[in-house]
Write a protein that binds this DNA or RNA. Structure first.
Length: 899
RNA sequence: AGGCCCAUAGCUCAGUUGGUUAGAGCGCUACGUUGACAUCGUAGAGGUCAGCGGUUCAAGUCCGCUUGGGCCUACCA
C-alpha cells in the first residue's frame, strides 16, 4: 500500500503552532487537517485507560466491511460517533471509541473470487489454503484504506485497541460462544429447509432474503384422480413453480371444503411422472386461492415442508444445490437449470393435455440479497441457533428501557420481529470466516469443542475432520461489543467499558446486528451491550434518491473531504441528522458550511490582529465592571453552552449544530465583533475587551471542536493564553458548560433592544429609499427605563452600527419618521422625508394587514373563555402585542397623513 | 397482508408538553467594495403548514378519514 506522505515540516506546521504567524485571508483546510490528525495520533490523545479513576464512555464502531472503501453513510455515522466521543472526552470522561473492521463473509469472498476469475482461476482450483492466503492479502490492503479514510474524517479512535472479527481474540470469543450455546442446547445441527442461494452455493439466513414483487404466472395443472380412470375425474391445482411438481408427494385440501369432501382417502396421479399423491386435509389451505387444492412439494417449499412434517409425507429433492434438476427429476429433466426445467415442464404438460390455463400473477419471491437471484428453498443439513429465549431478553431490555432505541419509533418493529423470531441458520458453505468448531469422527460422531485437541480428547481419537463450513458473518458481529474488550476473559477493558454507552448505526441493520448484539450480550454477560442505540437515516443524494452505482449519484466522502474539508462535511452531516429521517446530502450545503469555516477563520484572524497587547484567554472572567456588550456576549455564550450540552445529551446533533452556527455567525460575528470595533480601535475604549474577545473565542472554539476538530485546533493553538486551558491540545480541554454568573437577563433584554433598533433603522433606510450615506438623526423613547439607560449609555455604538449622525434617548420630535420595535419608539429625522409612491403603497399595505390583525387580537382578548382558560403569560403577551400593534398602527397612520 | 414514518417558502429541512407575528440554510431581488471575511455585508420578496372532518377559548402541533410518497416485517401455493 502506498503511503501518502504528509508534509509535517515547513510553513504548515509553523502555522499550526506559532500564534503570531501571519494568517492567510483564505482558509485552507488541506493545509492543516492531516497535520493535526497525525500529531494527535503521535501524542496518543485518544488512548483510553483501563482501569480508570474517571467515569468511562465507550462507543464501538460498527465495523466496516473490509470489502472496499467507506461511503457517505459511514462518514455520517463516524462523524456522529466521533462527535460524541470528543464531547465526552472533553467533559473529562475516559472516552473510548474502539475501531475495527469486519471480515464480511460472503461479501468479501465474492470480491476475491471475482479477482481470481479475472486471473482465469477459481477458489476451487487453488484450494482452501491458498484461497485464504489471498483473502488475508485482500484484508490487509482494504483494512489500510479504511483506517486512512477514518483519519481523513478526523476520527478520534483508539487505534491501539483496534479489532478485526477474524483476529485471534475475536475468534476465540466466537468459539467460546458457539461451544456454550451448543452445550446449552441452543445450537443444533439438523436437516431443515433453508434459503439456498445456488449462485453463491451456500445457505443464507432469513434476513439475507429480500422479497421482491415479480410479475409471474399461475399455472393451473390437471391431476387425474386415482381410480377414476374410467370416469376420468380430474382435479386442478394451481402453482407458480410447475418444475417443482416433479417432487410432489401429495395434494392438500381444506378439511371443510365441501367441494372436495369425496377426495378424502383417495389419491391423485402426478402427470408426467405417474406417482401416486395422497390427498391430505390441512387447515393451512386457503379455499379462496386458486382452485382450493394445493400440490405439495415437501423439499422445495417452506410451507410444504411444514405440511409434509405434519402429515408424515416423504420428500423428493428434484433441484440440487447448483440450481439444476437432479436425477430424481427424471431423465427428461435431470441436469436442466431450474428455469429451463420450468419451461420444459410446462411444454410437456401442454402437449399431454394437463395444462388447463395460465394466468398472470403478481407475487413476492425471495431473492438472495447478495447475488440477486431467486432463493431456492432446499432441504439441507445446517447449524441452527434457537433464538427464542434470547429474544425474550432483548424484548424486555427495550421495554424496560435498559436499552433505548433513538428514535423510539422503532420499538414496535423491534417488538414484532423479536416476538416472531425463528431459528437462525448460522452455517455457510464458504471458506472466508470462522470455521465451525465441530469435529467429526470417521464413524460420523460430532464433537463441538474449543479446539481440535479438546475434541480429540472427548472423542478418544485424533482421526477427526473439522466441519468445513464457516459461521454467518453476523455471528461474530453479534459478539462485537464484548469480544472486542477481551471476553470471555474478565479483562480490565471489559470491566471498564462494558456495557458501552451508545451504538450509532443505520436502521437497515437493526435486526442483522443490533438485535443480535442485545440478545447475545444479555445471554453471555448478563448486561445489555449498550445503553442507547442511535439509529441514523439513510444518506441520499440532493434529490432524495438512494445513492447507487448504477444511478451514478454516489458521493465519495474522500472526495468531499478534499473538496470542502473534513470539518465542513462533518458539520453538514451532523446538522442534517434529524431523528427518523433520511439525509439528503447536497454539495451546496457542504459548501455553505465550508463558508462557515471561513467565517470562523476570519473572525479569529480579526480578533488576533486587533486585540490589544497583553490580552489573553482567561479561564474565567468576572463580568462585574464590564460594559454591556461584553456582559451580553458572555451571557449568550453561557446559554449556548448549556443548550449545546442539552442537545447532545439527547442526540439532537442537528439542533446542537444549529445553536453553534447561529451563536457564532449571528451573535458573535454579526454583532459582538462589530460592537467590539470602536473599543478595539481606541475610539471608545472599554474594560478588558481583548480578554473577553479571546475568552469567548476560546470557548466558542471548544464548543465547536467535537463537530469541527481540525479548524478549531488550528485556531485555538494561536490564541494567546490557550495553554492555561490545556497545555497541549483543544482535544483534551474542558468542554464549556453553562456559567450562571455570566447570565444577565437585563443586559440581554437591553442589547436585544439595541440590535433590533439598529436593524429597524437599517430597514427604514431601505424603506425610505435613502442612500446608506444619508444623514439621519435617531430619537429613541423606550417604554422601559432600564433599557433607556442602556441605550443612552451605548449611544456611540448605536451611532456606529446604525450609521446615524446622532442618537438620543428622549421624546421623538414632530415630523420624524416613527416606528416601534422591542418596546422602543423610534423616530428617524431626515431632512427630506417626503414619501415616494412606492413607499406609500408599502406602508398602506402594511396598515391594511395590521388593521385585520388588530381586529382578530381584539376579538380574542374580549373572549371570556380565552381570558378564563388561557395561561396568564399568554393573555399578557397578547395584550402587549395588541398595544404594540396599536402604536405601530398610529405611527403608520401618521406617516401616511391619515386622521 | 400487517405495522411504521413522511407531506411546512422555489429547493432541502427545523418547528420539544397545543398558546403572542410559523423559522433556518441554499436559491431569488435590491443596495453595498464601511477598519476580519465577496466563501462577505444590509435589507427584501416568497407559506390557505397535502385535502376533508372533529376535539379545544386556541391546532402546523391532538383524533379520524382521504390522497400522494418512503420504509420495515410477512410461509398465500
Amino acid at each position: 500500500m502506498k503511503e501518502t506522505e504528509v508534509a509535517v515540516s515547513g510553513t504548515t506546521t509553523a502555522a499550526s503552532t506559532a500564534p503570531n504567524t501571519e494568517m492567510d485571508k483564505r482558509f485552507d483546510p488541506a493545509a492543516y487537517e492531516q497535520v493535526w490528525q497525525r500529531r494527535w495520533a503521535e501524542k496518543e490523545y485518544f488512548r483510553a485507560e483501563a482501569p480508570a479513576e474517571r467515569p468511562s464512555f465507550c462507543i464501538m464502531i460498527p465495523p466496516p466491511n473490509v470489502t472496499g472503501k467507506l461511503h457517505v453513510g459511514h462518514a455520517l455515522q463516524s462523524t456522529l460517533q466521533d462527535l460524541l466521543t470528543r464531547w465526552r472526552r472533553m467533559q473529562g470522561y475516559n472516552a473510548l471509541w474502539l475501531p475495527g473492521t469486519d471480515h464480511a463473509g460472503i461479501a468479501t469472498q465474492l470480491m476475491v473470487e471475482r479477482q481470481l476469475e479475472s486471473e482465469g482461476t477459481s477458489r476451487r482450483e487453488i484450494g482452501r489454503e491458498r484461497f485464504l492466503e489471498r483473502m488475508w492479502q485482500w484484508k490487509q490492503e482494504y483494512h489500510g484504506n479504511i483506517r486512512r479514510q477514518l483519519d481523513l474524517l478526523g476520527a478520534s479512535c483508539d487505534w491501539t485497541r483496534e479489532r478485526f472479527t477474524l483476529d485471534a481474540g475475536l475468534s476465540r470469543a466466537v468459539r467460546e460462544a458457539f461451544v456454550r450455546l451448543y452445550r446449552e442446547g441452543l445450537i443444533t445441527r439438523g436437516e431443515y429447509m433453508v434459503n439456498w442461494s445456488p449462485k453463491l452455493g451456500t445457505a443464507v439466513s432469513d434476513l439475507e432474503v429480500e422479497a421482491r414483487t415479480v410479475q409471474g404466472k399461475l399455472y393451473h395443472v390437471a391431476y387425474d384422480v386415482e381410480g377414476g380412470e374410467g370416469s376420468g375425474e380430474r382435479i386442478v391445482v394451481a402453482t407458480t413453480r410447475p418444475e417443482t411438481m416433479l417432487g410432489d408427494t401429495a395434494v392438500a385440501l381444506h378439511p371443510e371444503d365441501e367441494r372436495y369432501a369425496h377426495l378424502h382417502g383417495k389419491a391423485a396421479i402426478l402427470p408426467l411422472v405417474g406417482r401416486r399423491l395422497p390427498f391430505v386435509a390441512d387447515e393451512m389451505v386457503d379455499r379462496e386461492f386458486g382452485t382450493g387444492l394445493v400440490k405439495i412439494t415437501p423439499f422445495h417449499d417452506p410451507n410444504d415442508f411444514e405440511m409434509g412434517k405434519r402429515h408424515d409425507l416423504p420428500g423428493i429433492s428434484v433441484i440440487g444445490p447448483d440450481g439444476r434438476m437432479t436425477a430424481e427429476a427424471g431423465p427428461d429433466f435431470a441436469g436442466l437449470d431450474r428455469f429451463e426445467a420450468r419451461r420444459k415442464v410446462v411444454e410437456r404438460l401442454r402437449e399431454e393435455g394437463y395444462l388447463v390455463k395460465v394466468e398472470e400473477h403478481t407475487h413476492n419471491v425471495g431473492h438472495s440479497q447478495r447475488s440477486g437471484e431467486p432463493i431456492e428453498p432446499l432441504v439441507s443439513t445446517q447449524w441452527f441457533c434457537d433464538m427464542t429465549s434470547m429474544a425474550a431478553g432483548a424484548l424486555a431490555a427495550v421495554r424496560d428501557g435498559h436499552t433505548e432505541l433513538v428514535p423510539d419509533s422503532w420499538d414496535k418493529t423491534w417488538e414484532h420481529w423479536l416476538t416472531n423470531i425463528r431459528p437462525w441458520c448460522i452455517s455457510r458453505q464458504l471458506w472466508w470466516g470462522h470455521q465451525i468448531p465441530a469435529w467429526y469422527t470417521e464413524d460420523g460422531r460430532c464433537f463441538v469443542a474449543h479446539s481440535a485437541e479438546e475434541a480429540a480428547g472427548e472423542a478418544g481419537t485424533d482421526r477427526l475432520t473439522q466441519d468445513p463450513d464457516v459461521l454467518d458473518t453476523w455471528f461474530s458481529s453479534a459478539l462485537w461489543p464484548f469480544s472486542t474488550l477481551g471476553w470471555p476473559d474478565d479483562t480490565p477493558d471489559l470491566r471498564t467499558f462494558y456495557p458501552t454507552d451508545v451504538m450509532v448505526t443505520g436502521f437497515d441493520i437493526l435486526f442483522f446486528w443490533v438485535a443480535r448484539m442485545v440478545m447475545t450480550g444479555l445471554h453471555f454477560t448478563g448486561e445489555v451491550p449498550f445503553r442507547k442505540v442511535h439509529l441514523t437515516g439513510l444518506v441520499r443524494d440532493a434529490e432524495g434518491q438512494k445513492m447507487s452505482k448504477t444511478k451514478g449519484n454516489v458521493l465519495d466522502p474522500t472526495e468531499l473531504v478534499s473538496e470542502y474539508g473534513a470539518d465542513a462535511l462533518r458539520f453538514t452531516l451532523a446538522s442534517l441528522d434529524s431523528p427518523g429521517r433520511d439525509i439528503p446530502l447536497n454539495p451546496n450545503q457542504i459548501a455553505g458550511y465550508r463558508a462557515f469555516g471561513n467565517k470562523i477563520w476570519n473572525a479569529a484572524r480579526f480578533a488576533l490582529s486587533r486585540i490589544p497587547e497583553g490580552a489573553r484567554v482567561r479561564e474565567s472572567i468576572d463580568p462585574a465592571g464590564l460594559a454591556a456588550p461584553e456582559r451580553w456576549i458572555l451571557s449568550r455564550l453561557s446559554r449556548v453552552a448549556m443548550e449545546v450540552n442539552e442537545q447532545l445529551e439527547i442526540f439532537r446533533f442537528d439542533e446542537a449544530c444549529n445553536r453553534l452556527y447561529h451563536f457564532f455567525w449571528g451573535d458573535f460575528c454579526d454583532w459582538y465583533l462589530e460592537l467590539s470595533k470602536p473599543a478595539l480601535f481606541g475610539d471608545a475604549p472599554r474594560p478588558r475587551v481583548g480578554d473577553v474577545l479571546l475568552t469567548v473565542l476560546d470557548r466558542a472554539l471548544r464548543l465547536l471542536h467535537p463537530v469541527m476538530p481540525f479548524l478549531t485546533e488550528e485556531l485555538w493553538q494561536r490564541l494567546p493564553g490557550h495553554e492555561a486551558i490545556h497545555p497541549e491540545t483543544i482535544c483534551l480541554a474542558p468542554y464549556p458548560r453553562r456559567e450562571e454568573a455570566w447570565e444577565d437577563a437585563a443586559v440581554e433584554a437591553g442589547m436585544e433592544a439595541l440590535t433590533q433598533v439598529v436593524t429597524r433603522v437599517r430597514a427604514l433606510r431601505t424603506e425610505m429609499s435613502l442612500s446608506p450615506k444619508a444623514k439621519l438623526d435617531l430619537h429613541l423613547q423606550p417604554a422601559d427605563a432600564r433599557i433607556g439607560g442602556l441605550l443612552q449609555e451605548q449611544a456611540p455604538l448605536l451611532r456606529f452600527l446604525a450609521r446615524v449622525e446622532t442618537a438620543a434617548v428622549g421624546p421623538v420630535p414632530e415630523g420624524a419618521r416613527r416606528d416601534l420595535v422591542a418596546g422602543v419608539e423610534i423616530g428617524v429625522a431626515v431632512e427630506k422625508a417626503e414619501m415616494g409612491a412606492e413607499e406609500r403603497g408599502r406602508l398602506a399595505k402594511e396598515l391594511e394587514k395590521l388593521d385585520a390583525e388588530i381586529g382578530r387580537a381584539e376579538a380574542r382578548l374580549s373572549n371570556a373563555d380565552f381570558l378564563g382558560k388561557a395561561p396568564a403569560h399568554v393573555v399578557e403577551g397578547g395584550r402587549a402585542r395588541l398595544a404594540e400593534m396599536r402604536e405601530r398602527q398610529a405611527a403608520l397612520r401618521a406617516s401616511l397623513g391619515l386622521a
